[in-house]
Design a protein around this nucleic acid. Structure first.
Length: 308
RNA sequence: GGUGCCAUAGCUCAGUUGGUAGAGCAACGGACUGAAAAUCCGUGUGUCCCUGGUUCAAUUCCAGGUGGCACCA
């Protein structure tokens, strides 16, 4: 199938919206391959907790190729820049083989980095700088950053020490290497969103949570702890990894864990929707599909949009 | 059946010496460019259980009722 207008199809949606199924079927029809835009599914060994579902990538016995899932070990510090970079490799790989890329995920920042072509370049860790900055207070760090870069592009830079130090590190590097470009091509993507009304979104999240707990999600987190990941690391991964860890190390009863985790996932889905609305406000046209629409109809809609 | 305690936001509970009320959590809205499932900001949504009494005025005081809890039978 030849595509003229669009170089890529993007399928986004909040957690538990069924976007992967839609993306996989669309990829099958388009002779496509999936590039995952999920900041947690990149980790090996983090499966049930991230909602990774390998079965989604097989349709009628035929595997749908996917990229950027299981690419680093749990514990590795990944980030938007690395994603952008890995995305480009996958994208080039797919298009060189004349397949159609389908970007699919719920990590809004990652998706926007690609669609809006964020200018991010590789900035290595600067250990000397970090050592120098480490003893300084948040206020001092913020002042240093503002001196270097009075116009803040990233408004969350000043929220905590870790972020400010990284921002100073990046700014320092840019001063020394002013001419770097990321060579990212402009990609014209059709953007499709899958969503349910709030009530059903919440219902689906709860159902899926119960299911995954029955399928051994606690064992998975225990395995990560056994492998040497610290509770702090797992807590930072948030949601399932945070709350199941707190339960496993005895800081939370099962009931409390379930109740709080359920709430946290609901809040997360809400934040995802806020991000998508923000993308629309900033000019990204999202073609929304109602979750209840039969799969066949969703695919038909997507084909129509792609050709229009 | 008797006695005591309780009844206020979706939940747990403050409070009003009588002038129609506020915390936490939830919920809702927003921000977001290098760990984004992270991080941060904002918003009170209410027959103060019901009926009557006292009072200029009752969610507050009094009586009765209803419901819940505890103890005694």
């Amino acid at each position: 199938m030849k595509q003229r207008k669009y170089h890529m199809l993007t399928i986004l949606g909040p957690t538990a919206s069924g976007k992967t199924t839609v993306a996989a079927h669309a990829a099958k029809r388009l002779g496509g391959e999936i590039i995952s835009a999920d900041s947690r599914q990149i980790y090996r060994g983090m499966d049930l907790g991230t909602g990774k579902d390998y079965e989604d990538y097989e349709i009628e016995g035929q595997p749908i190729p996917y990229h950027l899932i299981d690419i680093v070990d749990a514990g590795f510090e990944y980030n938007v820049y690395l994603f952008h970079n890995d995305f480009l490799k996958a994208y080039n790989d797919i298009t060189e083989r004349e397949k159609f890329p389908v970007l699919c995920g719920g990590s809004g920042l990652y998706i926007e980095a690609v669609l809006n072509n964020y200018q991010l370049i590789q900035v290595p860790k600067n250990h000397d700088l970090r050592k120098e900055m480490d003893p300084k207070s948040l206020d001092e760090l913020v002042r240093i950053l503002l001196d270097m870069k009075p116009e803040q592009h990233n408004t969350t830079d000043t929220e905590n020490r870790r972020r400010v130090i990284r921002a100073i590190e990046i700014e320092t590097y840019l001063k020394q290497n002013p001419e770097l470009s990321n060579n990212m091509p402009e990609i014209n993507s059709l953007v499709v969103g899958v969503k349910y009304d709030r009530e059903h979104r919440r219902k689906r999240i709860t159902e899926r949570l119960k299911q995954r707990l029955e399928n051994g999600m606690l064992d998975e987190v225990q395995r990560l702890l056994d492998k040497g990941l610290t509770p702090e690391q797992l807590t930072y991964y948030g949601l399932e990894y945070k709350y199941l860890t707190l339960h496993l190390i005895g800081e939370m009863s099962y009931e409390e864990m379930f109740a709080k985790l359920e709430i946290a996932i609901h809040q997360f889905a809400k934040r995802q929707m806020t991000w998508f609305r923000r993308m629309e406000k900033h000019g990204t046209k999202i073609h929304w599909l109602d979750g209840f629409m039969p799969l066949e109809d969703k695919l038909t809609k997507i084909s129509q949009w792609l050709e229009s």
